[in-house]
Structures are given as structure tokens and as C-alpha cells.
């Protein structure tokens, strides 16, 4: 049982980060009907941006008190979100808007996004470094056990990640369903030309959508970097997984992305290790295969994802 809970907790932690990234994919898909392939680099830039700020504030982190640590955590989250937002905004202006203006075929967006992704990832590698083991300074004891659930320990960091992710998702949900900007986003997703006729500034709405998605991904980058290591190529795998999560939940659907992310995180941690059987079942090296097989099966039997495509247009 404690093994099961251990993997479940791991899955929820990872899944909530996937969900944060997946929201960016799903938002952009909702308004533009295209896959923002460079989103994973927005995530990566969030880690670097927040690292620079955190590093400047706490140094190596040995002399940080508890209250300061909380503040620094908030600061890291905000700076990561800001970096992500800026990068996503520039990305939209440079790689997407010119193509939109000339009515380029959809695949051209994909290719320009791939180009931007290569450029960003390598530029960050060139500017900072290309090592795979950059770490945030340890300014608080991330591994401290907070409490136990059925014998599985839950660390401080895991709680921070899940709580932060949930807060951000709640905030986004309110934003999209309750504010004027949210209404604009939903209207654009529903039918852009008509929304334009109703007085929605399409360009501005799209731009803001990118900014919101970028901020979430940047925050996720900070959380991911704090939990593991960060590098200029860190975006690739989580990006793919988050994209899969977005599709799983029904791309274009915000709540779908949240559920898809959590489900994917839990499933890929629980199934390959099968902790309820006691022995290793097929082994952890099949994690990715399990994730993709689940995805394929769900899509074959429910081709529009778990919750369907509510935000976006059907077909």
C-alpha cells in the first residue's frame, strides 16, 4: 500500500506540472487551432529566468531563513512566469503573427514553431551553458517530510508543487470563465471572424492567450527546475508529455488539460511499476511506452479526448 501511495504521490506531482504546461498548448490550440511546438522552450526559459533571479537573491542559499524562503519561492514563481510570458509573447509576434497575416498553410506554423524551438533551446544553451545538471540553490529543505499518507511520506516540495499548480489552475479557470478577457478568448476560440465583428480585438486576444499560457509554463519551469535539474534541452520530454496530456483531455479544453495532465502523470508512474503486485512488473524503462499506449487507446475509443473539445470548435 505504501508503495502504491508513493507512486501515486509521484504521479500527482509530475502530473500537476504536466497539466500546467498542457494548459498552454490547449489555450493556444483553442484560439488558433494549431500546436505551439515551441511551448516546451517557453517552459525551459522559465526555469532559466527564475534561476537567475533566485540565484541573485539567495546566492548559494545556505543562509536563508524560513520566511525568506517562502518569499523567494513566490519570487521564483513570479519571475519564471514573467520570463515565460515574455518569451511566449515574442514567439507569437515573431513566429506566428507574420504567418497569420499572410494566411500561411497550417503546417507552416508548425515548421516555424519548430525553427523557433531549435533557436531558443540552442540560444539558451549558448548563452548560459549546455550542461545537463544545473541546480537551483537549496534555500530550503525540500526533502523534509511533512506528513504521511497510508505510510507514504509526502515531502515539502511535493506539497509546494501541487498547491502552486492547483492555485494557478484555479486562477486560470476563473480568468477564462469570469473576466472580460476570458470571454474574449472563448469568443475567439468559438468563431474568430464573428468575434472580431462583435468588437473583440483578435490580435490582442491571441497575444494575451500566449502570455497566459507562457506564464503558466514558465511557472512550471520554475517548479520543475526546483524539483529536478534544469538544462537547455529540458523542455523536450515534458513538452511532449504535456502535449499528449492536452490531447488526452481533449485539446482546446482547459479542464480537460488539467485532468489529462494529472491522469497521464499518475498512469505513467503507476502502471509500469505496478506497485500493487509487489514485484516490478514491466519495469520503469517502459514508462513512456505506457504513457503513449494509454493515449493511443483512449484516442481510438474516444477520438476527441476525455472531456471533448469544448473551448475549440469541433472539426
Amino acid at each position: 500500500m505504501s508503495d502504491f501511495m508513493n507512486y501515486l504521490i509521484l504521479g500527482v506531482t509530475r502530473g500537476s506540472m504536466y497539466a500546467l504546461i498542457a494548459l498552454g498548448y490547449t489555450l493556444v490550440y483553442g484560439v488558433l487551432q494549431l500546436i505551439n511546438f515551441a511551448h516546451s522552450e517557453v517552459f525551459m526559459s522559465g526555469a532559466f529566468g527564475s534561476f537567475l533571479v533566485v540565484h541573485a537573491v539567495v546566492g548559494d542559499g545556505s543562509s536563508t531563513s524560513g520566511v525568506e524562503a517562502v518569499l523567494v519561492l513566490g519570487l521564483g514563481l513570479v519571475s519564471g512566469a514573467l520570463t515565460g510570458a515574455v518569451i511566449a509573447y515574442v514567439l507569437e509576434r515573431v513566429a506566428y503573427r507574420p504567418l497569420r497575416k499572410r494566411g500561411a498553410p497550417k503546417l507552416a506554423f508548425l515548421i516555424s514553431a519548430i525553427g523557433a524551438s531549435f533557436l531558443l533551446s540552442q540560444l539558451f544553451g549558448k548563452l548560459f551553458n549546455r550542461l545537463g545538471n544545473n541546480r537551483f540553490p537549496s534555500y530550503f529543505n525540500a526533502d523534509r517530510t511533512l506528513f504521511h499518507v497510508f505510510g507514504a511520506r509526502v515531502t515539502l516540495l511535493q506539497v509546494i508543487i501541487v498547491v502552486a499548480a492547483l492555485l494557478l489552475m484555479l486562477f486560470l479557470d476563473r480568468l477564462v470563465s469570469g473576466t472580460k478577457l476570458g470571454r474574449g478568448i472563448r469568443a475567439t476560440a468559438e468563431d474568430a471572424p464573428t468575434a472580431a465583428l462583435m468588437g473583440v480585438d483578435i490580435d490582442r486576444t491571441i497575444s494575451r492567450t500566449f502570455i497566459i499560457g507562457g506564464a503558466l509554463a514558465g511557472a512550471a519551469g520554475f517548479l520543475f527546475g526546483t524539483a529536478f535539474v534544469f538544462s537547455n534541452t529540458m523542455g523536450f520530454i515534458p513538452g511532449i508529455k504535456a502535449f499528449a496530456a492536452a490531447v488526452l483531455g481533449g485539446i482546446g479544453n482547459i479542464r480537460g488539460a488539467m485532468i489529462g495532465g494529472l491522469l497521464l502523470g499518475i498512469a505513467e508512474n503507476l502502471i509500469p511499476t505496478a506497485p500493487w503486485t509487489g514485484t516490478a512488473w514491466i519495469g520503469i524503462q517502459w514508462t513512456d511506452v505506457v504513457a503513449f499506449v494509454i493515449l493511443i487507446l483512449i484516442l481510438v475509443f474516444r477520438p476527441t479526448g476525455i472531456l471533448g473539445e469544448r473551448l475549440g470548435r469541433a472539426a
Binding site: 513566429a95 507574420p98 500561411a104 507552416a108 516555424s112 525553427g115 533557436l119 540552442q122 544553451g125
Partner: peptide, 29 residues
Amino acid sequence: AEDRTMWIGAVLLIMMIFRPQGLIPARRR
């Protein structure tokens, strides 16, 4: 050598911004 991918990315990006139909587009497209 490390910068090659970066320059290829830049080439792809610029190409798509200025000529989204590709080098030699098909007539029908």
C-alpha cells in the same frame, strides 16, 4: 559545431515568415 542546430532553426523560422509556401511549392498548393 554546437551552434549548428541554432542556425538551422533560424533558417527555418525566417523561411516560414517570408516564404511559407516553401522553396518550390506545388502548383495546386
